[in-house]
Design a protein around this nucleic acid. Structure first.
Lengths: 187, 187
DNA sequence: TTGCTCCTCACGTCACGTGAGGTGGC
DNA sequence: TTGCTCCTCACGTCACGTGAGGTGGC
């Protein structure tokens, strides 16, 4: 005996799918253009129809994108060709380490430039409060900020000190901050 | 009484300058195109002649580039227009923090993906040794690797554990590595 | 008719890299 | 002549973003 009701398939338009995944339409258009995610069909008005399968595929794509894998490599992964997934992932992991180290070096350079600039004289207003609000405005929570100080202090205490100095914070305050950054350790 | 010898000015061709700064020719060509660094003159063959002043300017550009400042902002800094230098530098510093956090999230995703993949079954060879040589091949020294383990362990012990597991390392080895990563602390 | 989403080009972004085709001095 | 550096377009990269100009259903 057959079921006479049609299986409930979930078909979505490009806008709905974009919203569901927190992506932009142009991102999905782009994925279609390069053949990474072509919708299974079109409706009467030539609108893209994304089916369940397409959605599953986008789920995969989205995950790998969140790992920072390039679209080209994601194509390879999904098609099953090219390097093994675990190799691609570990390569990317190593790449991230390099990128983070590069960014750390940039932070180091910035500290040096601030040290040599007349930031303090130029801008005595630009003190601890401004800096703190900068963190908060950018959505960084107090605990994250503290954690960051802790890591900075541990990684390169001298840079940390100089950085704090470049902000025009009093040496008494600096001593306080650094002490507490080191203390968090034992906890 | 005047000096009758001509001041020794240092004039360089584009190739020489590129080599001196460890940049490519096309980089310098690009800087000329966008008006960031236009050589003071040309010689008879229409070759670019970079003078002492140009070299000093490139020194500045190069420094800010090493801080990851965009060419557009460097233009503003050198021309003295726009935001103050210290503001630009601290903005960039904050941006780097965001970027590093994004990369850390990507590492987290990779760990999850490795955990859920059959990396271990697929690739039992892909053990500690392969991973270690990956680090070494990519120019990361042993001490840097150790430092990295230490930080990873401190920041998110659970992720670190899972990551090590995903590599197929024995639980005994893992315990050993993690213990030693924590120990470094007291030193 | 208004408002909404959808469509397809096609060009812009950022910091260069890469030829193609040609010149000039040793 | 060979080899070297230099020159000027002009197009490619990567992952989209941004109009421009137009359609289709409520």
């Amino acid at each position: 005996m057959k079921h006479h009701f049609i299986a409930e398939v979930c078909v979505m338009t490009i806008g709905q799918l974009a919203q569901k995944f927190g992506l932009s339409r142009s991102t999905l258009l782009h994925y279609d253009h390069i053949g990474l995610l072509t919708p299974s069909g079109r409706d009467d008005s030539n609108y893209r129809r994304y089916t369940d399968n397409d959605i599953k595929r986008l789920e995969l794509v989205s995950n790998y994108r969140e790992a920072g894998i390039s679209l080209e490599l994601i194509k390879q992964i999904i098609s099953g060709k090219g390097n093994s997934v675990s190799r691609i992932l570990t390569n990317r992991f190593r790449q991230i380490i390099d990128e983070i180290n590069l960014l750390r070096e940039q932070q180091h350079v910035i500290v040096e430039l601030l040290k040599n600039s007349d930031a303090v004289k130029d801008n005595p207003i630009f003190g601890q409060e401004q800096w703190k609000s900068l963190f908060i405005d950018s959505g960084i929570s107090e605990p994250t900020m503290k954690k960051w100080h802790t890591i900075f202090e541990k990684r390169s205490p001298e840079d940390h000190k100089q950085f704090l100095e470049s902000l025009g914070i009093s040496s008494r305050e600096i001593t306080k901050i650094r002490k507490w950054a080191r203390k968090k350790d034992g906890k």
